[in-house]
Structure formats: structure tokens, C-alpha cells
């Protein structure tokens, strides 16, 4: 997905069920963007998108990749996972809807805010999911 105009791009692996390291990839993404001097309001939006996308893989998928790419006018994030997929995307986009287990909820996750939070902080948001295979979320944030 790296385009010619890309200034920077990188991908990270996120492991499903790995709550101990959950959030680390988002922190890495944030630190890189900070280093290359991206505006802090943009970084805050990217951080929310990356965090929620990362947590979705940790909570629901077997494994996923979070990659981002910076070009002069936008940041693109792609989250792709191998997992159960989402049966009803419309429902999943509704705030408060969640299929999280009680165990996950007790940790304060699975509030049904993840995908809505991602969408709210995106300028462009695309989601595709195949049940039994996995989910792909693509987000663009204009800089």
C-alpha cells in the first residue's frame, strides 16, 4: 500500500488475546508521528483510531496487522485481521452494541464504542468484513 508520495509507512503485528501488550502498537504509532512532527491534534485523532483498532484485534481476532502511511496531505491507517469477522456491520457501528464477553467487559473494554470512536475521528472510513475470515478497516485522516 506504500505509494510514491509516501513520506513514511510502517506495519505492526497485533496478537489476539494479548491483553498484556494491548495498546503498545498504538503508543508506537503515536511516538513515530510525534517524531516526524505531525500536528498534535492530528496525532490525538490517530491515537484514538489506532488504539480502538488495536483493541478490536486483541479482543476479537486471532491476529492482525496495523499499518499506517503518511503522505504530505493525509495519514492512512489500515487494520486487517484474521478472525471471526463481523456478522452485522450496521449493528457493530451502533454506539453501545458489543459482543464482548463478561471477562472483557470487567476490564473496562467492550463498551461498544470502538468502531464509532474510529469513525468519529476519521475523515474517510471504510469497513469490510467476511464472517469466519476477518475484518479490514481503512481510515484516512487529512492533515
Amino acid at each position: 500500500m506504500v505509494e510514491e508520495s509516501s513520506i513514511f509507512g510502517k506495519g505492526f503485528t497485533v496478537r489476539g488475546g494479548d491483553f498484556a501488550n494491548a495498546g503498545e502498537v498504538s503508543c508506537k504509532v503515536r511516538n513515530i508521528l510525534k517524531e516526524i512532527g505531525i500536528n498534535s491534534d492530528i496525532i490525538r485523532r490517530v491515537a484514538i483510531v489506532a488504539y480502538e483498532a488495536e483493541m478490536n484485534v486483541v479482543m476479537y481476532a486471532r491476529e492482525g496487522t496495523l499499518s499506517f502511511e503518511v503522505t504530505p496531505d493525509r495519514i492512512k491507517l489500515v487494520m486487517e485481521d484474521e478472525g471471526n469477522g463481523i456478522e452485522n456491520i450496521e449493528l457493530a457501528m451502533q454506539e453501545g452494541y458489543s459482543t464482548a464477553t463478561d471477562e472483557i467487559r470487567e476490564m473496562g473494554f467492550g463498551a461498544g464504542m470502538g468502531l464509532p470512536n474510529i469513525k468519529k475521528n476519521s475523515d474517510d472510513f471504510k469497513i469490510n468484513s467476511i464472517v469466519g475470515k476477518g475484518t479490514r478497516v481503512e481510515v484516512t485522516i487529512s492533515t
Binding site: F19, A22, I48, G108, M113
Partner: peptide, 24 residues
């Protein structure tokens, strides 16, 4: 105590009160 709520609504410079104790 909901992580996504904090991600959505907490602001830079805030002090956050929670019962959660895990690394996230």
C-alpha cells in the same frame, strides 16, 4: 472505568480517576 469512554472523552492534561488496574 470504560477505556473507550476515556479514549473518546478525556482531554490532554486531565487527571483520570478509575478502578481499573491493568496495564492498558
Amino acid at each position: 472505568d470504560l477505556l473507550s469512554d476515556v479514549m473518546a472523552n478525556c482531554k490532554k492534561g486531565d487527571i483520570w480517576v478509575t478502578l481499573q488496574i491493568h496495564p492498558n
